[in-house]
Design a protein around this nucleic acid. Structure first.
Lengths: 340, 340
DNA sequence: TTGTAGGCGTTATCAC
DNA sequence: GTGATAACGCCTACAA
């Protein structure tokens, strides 16, 4: 019984009406144009035949694919799966499906994936890859297709975006270290060409200033990527600097993990000798030894909010771009303690 | 310059040919039906206008969406991101795009996602969720759409499938423990209604037998899910049993992580008191303390092979279903040692 | 309230 | 080798 062949015409025939009438009865927005009696007859016929509207034909006609393009750096980064789930689940409940594209931080690949999605006529984009000044942003904006940024914001807030409140998060982290008695706090900053890296670094400086603490030269190292390897490299750099430190605030959890390795190698114990605090509360980060103290936020919510913003735009919403800041909270685990 | 409006008709007009001819020139398989001269004229026109074929219209006409439905339990399970990447990358290079659906192990949700994908006219399915006797399998087979199983096999090998060689993997794990001198080895088996759980458990028993070792009652616990919580519960069960054990072979890494917690609570050290070996070599599992000894395989390859098998079927390949076994290897880390 | 007709952009099947 | 025509399945003015 090849029910894949059941078409609107079949339903109409069975209900004894014209295909156009069947179409109206089947679509919620046009159902009121049809008498209740025939509507229910059509619905019954559709159910009996197991009718499934052909989304391809519908897309061609309505010019809406009910498809969304999602660009992320790498699904293997543990931060993204929960975000993507929040996004996809929310989109799904509104009849959309997400096409996930990995860019690996490669501009060429990013461009290719983007074009491919355009060819598939996605109704909107969610970009989690955007650098602060990404040429793709202008192009996306010009294409007339709605765009939402996720886990990133543009330099000028010109796009609807969802991100954790990085400044508040860093304040929590630094505040925690200060309250434990730390005064010599180092920072391993993420890449400065993405908003998370830049904002967290700036927030670190201002949080330190507000606490009346100095940040002498050599107390900050800049990672070229949010990776374990870079965290390791930067931690060594910071540890080797003049003056020393009693705590490290890392730009994210991956960098913090790199710190662990550097501390191990240097024969320093955490938190007895040096405290470490991360950012993101990645899945499974609590299984490390010591379990990482870090700034947490709901990854799922970031994705879900991004979906909401995009859906609003795809439904024709105009107005000024909304920027949603998800609230962070500090999770104190075993990697932070009083300075010795 | 709304290049989104560039259609085949425009290209044809600019090249001074009929749309049908332009279509032939643009498609590789029909290009030879057209004179070289006009072909190049059409190609030039297309390039100048920035023509992008409308995939939706093409799908409607050709009845091929170049879209693949992928069902997995949960993207948050760290095993899946690398597998999905292998799959998606390979599919992408053949012009296909993957729709990822999470089922959360829920049959109702699984069914819904499956239907949704059918409505979108996917050209094939990759199922990583299939229970040993999943009604969905029969239905999928009957629908005439190619299906490939991933990280699972069906009870009767009736579907093309890709999985790690579980039996070989378990042999490596047990062999390693035996060679260290362990004789009292417990097993925390995964769910017995999925092939990984069942095959690994059976392989454990036969590997023990082949080594001349007994598996007395109470030495095996059955997890109801591949989760940390279930690993914890089962580990407590096994530790409480008569006779005790000096090593635990876990059905996968998640269960092994649960063991860690149970050992911690019981005041037992790993590996000094009890060795633990896992399966899968999940990302970041090497960061645990102690780093987990486990059976590894290329997750990426599993996904890539699944893509290959599916592409072959989607291209009309018939023949008997191929079952690909990816080779495992043992990674010895810090969680295994000689019995005390 | 329902039927009619046309077209979304593409490709397949005819003719020429 | 190329052009004309129809059709994939659906939706939506417009007419009745």
């Amino acid at each position: 019984m090849p029910e894949s062949a059941v078409t609107l015409k079949d339903v109409a025939a069975r209900a004894g009406v014209h295909p156009a009438t069947a179409s109206r009865a089947l679509n919620l927005e046009t159902r009121l144009l049809v008498s209740d009696q025939t509507a229910s007859r059509v619905l019954a016929a559709a159910a009996e035949l197991g009718y499934q509207p052909n989304t391809v034909a519908r897309s061609l006609r309505t010019r809406r694919s009910h498809t969304v393009g999602v660009l992320i750096p790498d699904l293997n980064n543990p931060l993204f799966p929960p975000i993507v789930r929040g996004l996809a689940d929310r989109l799904e409940s509104h009849g959309y499906v997400a096409l996930i594209g990995n860019t690996d931080g490669d501009d060429v690949r990013e461009r290719r994936v983007f074009e491919q999605m355009r060819a598939r006529h996605v109704d909107g984009y969610v970009l989690a890859t955007a650098h602060l000044h990404d040429p793709l942003l202008a192009e996306a904006a010009q294409s007339g297709v709605p765009v939402v940024l996720m886990n990133r914001i543009a330099a000028d807030d010109s796009f609807p975006s969802v991100t954790v409140d990085n400044e508040a998060g860093v304040r929590l982290a630094v505040g925690h270290l200060v309250s434990l008695g730390h005064r010599d706090i180092a920072c391993i900053a993420g890449p400065q060409d993405v908003s998370t890296g830049l904002v967290r670094y700036r927030s670190f400086r201002s949080a330190m200033t507000d606490s009346g603490l100095e940040v002498p030269d050599g107390r900050v190292a800049f990672a070229r990527a949010f990776s374990i390897a870079e965290g390791y490299r930067c931690a060594r750099e910071v540890l080797a600097a003049q003056g020393g430190c009693t705590a490290i605030a890392a730009g994210n959890d991956m960098l913090a993990v790199g710190c662990y390795r550097a501390l191990d190698e240097a024969g320093l114990r955490c938190p007895a000798d040096i405290s470490v605090v991360g950012f993101n509360d990645m899945p499974f980060i609590d299984l490390l030894r010591p379990p990482l103290t870090t700034v947490a936020f709901s990854h799922f919510e970031v994705g879900a909010h991004a979906a909401d913003l995009l859906i609003e735009r795809m439904n024709g919403g105009q107005g000024a771009p909304t920027v949603i800041y998800v609230s962070p909270r500090l999770i104190v685990r075993g990697s932070t303690g009083r300075p010795s």
